[in-house]
Write a protein that binds this DNA or RNA. Sequence first.
DNA 1: CTCCCGATAT
DNA 2: ATATCAGGAG
Length: 221
Amino acid sequence: MLTKKEIRFCLDEMKKMFPDAQCELEHKNPFELVIAVLLSAQCTDTLVNKVTKELFKKYKTPEDYLAVTLEELQQDIRSIGLYRNKAKNIRKLCTMLLEEYGGIVPQTKAELVKLAGVGRKTANVVASVAFDEPAIAVDTHVERVSKRLGICKWKDSVTEVEETLMRKVPRDEWSVTHHRMIFFGRYHCKSRNPNCPECPLLEICREGQKRMRKRKEVNAN
DNA sequence: CTCCCGATAT
DNA sequence: ATATCAGGAG
């Protein structure tokens, strides 16, 4: 496990690599952000942006999503994947927003996680990005990076990763850190082919050093 | 834990 | 061909 000083080093190096890391899901208001994040499960945000560009022209309010048939909504988001679950959840979400919140997206994490299709990660993203509340959303990238670097243990659950990060990262850096870790995971410490040889964090990264040793062995043959 | 699922990179 | 993509519900 990394020391406090080593974690500080990671945060500073990530800041150098991705000084302007931010939410890449295109949205004009909290409602659009909730829909976009819900759609982004197991899907690249590039594709989400491609779909929402048209989707948000057609659907502006919760009422709009409830005005069409389930099949029509499914077709409008089909290319995203997992579209049956997502269409169903969007309709439930919109119903809840209208019945319980007057059609307005609530601002607290506690309220957000109760919404259909909104789990801990989505609630954190919306709270952080739309409402400026300190939060660390642990998605696939944040989880992978945290485990490779040794910020947390390999067997930790997503919730445990989030708790560890909140303990070890200063609260006023939660949101930027979360975005920089995503960029670091998405563009550098990739799942398939991480760029360990050019990684500024290699000196403190157990996983990176292990991969570099394997690389040498292969080279020797 | 399983299921949902099309698009894209490798 | 197949692993992976800003996960969540049952």
